[in-house]
Amino acid sequence: MEERYARQRLFWGDERQRLIGESELLVAGVGGLGATVCQIMARAGVGRLLLVDDGAVALEDLHRQSLYGECDLGRKKVLVARERLQAINSTVEIVVREERIGCGFAVPGGVPLVADCLDNYEGRFALWDALPAGCRLVHGGVQGDRGQVLTLVKGESQPLNEIYAGSVQPAGAIEVSPYSVFVIAGLMCSELCHVIGGSAKLLDRFLVVDLVDLSLSFLDV
């Protein structure tokens, strides 16, 4: 195994590293959560990343979206993300799709694991509908100083759109602190690595994170 993984292999062992290296992950949305999720997973040595997003880098993104800088303004996020991720870890296979996830979205066949880093319910529900049976979804959401992480298995868990039934997108831009996305994205990656290792911690269970009072709570669904 490569020297680059030496420190994490000490932590989680060679078998976990092998599983991560053989895994494939679709990251839906490479904005606040997604940019950090795909960065951490690339650094961890995931085998293949499929990035889906249709957005371009804007000035208002730079306070929290860790892969982008001023030189990227106006460029497609997935293209910038691929460049940065390949510079971080050239052994990771990276495939990008410039596409908005909405009604009619199709998940490529065989994708076993998806990180929901989207910023809208319409996209999240379309993504859930598009997942094949047995696919595992690690969902994240963030707003202000709070957020949540949840793992679901398509065909076994309650559907995401039933859990969130009635939820309507807030009007206008959603408030978010620069650090909360890193906290939630980090927790999503922890869960992704647990899922890959066969030991999901948040299956059918929200982890609700509140940075206002520094609390963590669970909510079973």
Partner: peptide, 10 residues
């Protein structure tokens, strides 16, 4: 009974 306002953004 649980009352949960989820984070909507990403």
């Amino acid at each position: 009974l649980a009352l949960f306002p989820p984070g909507a953004g990403g």
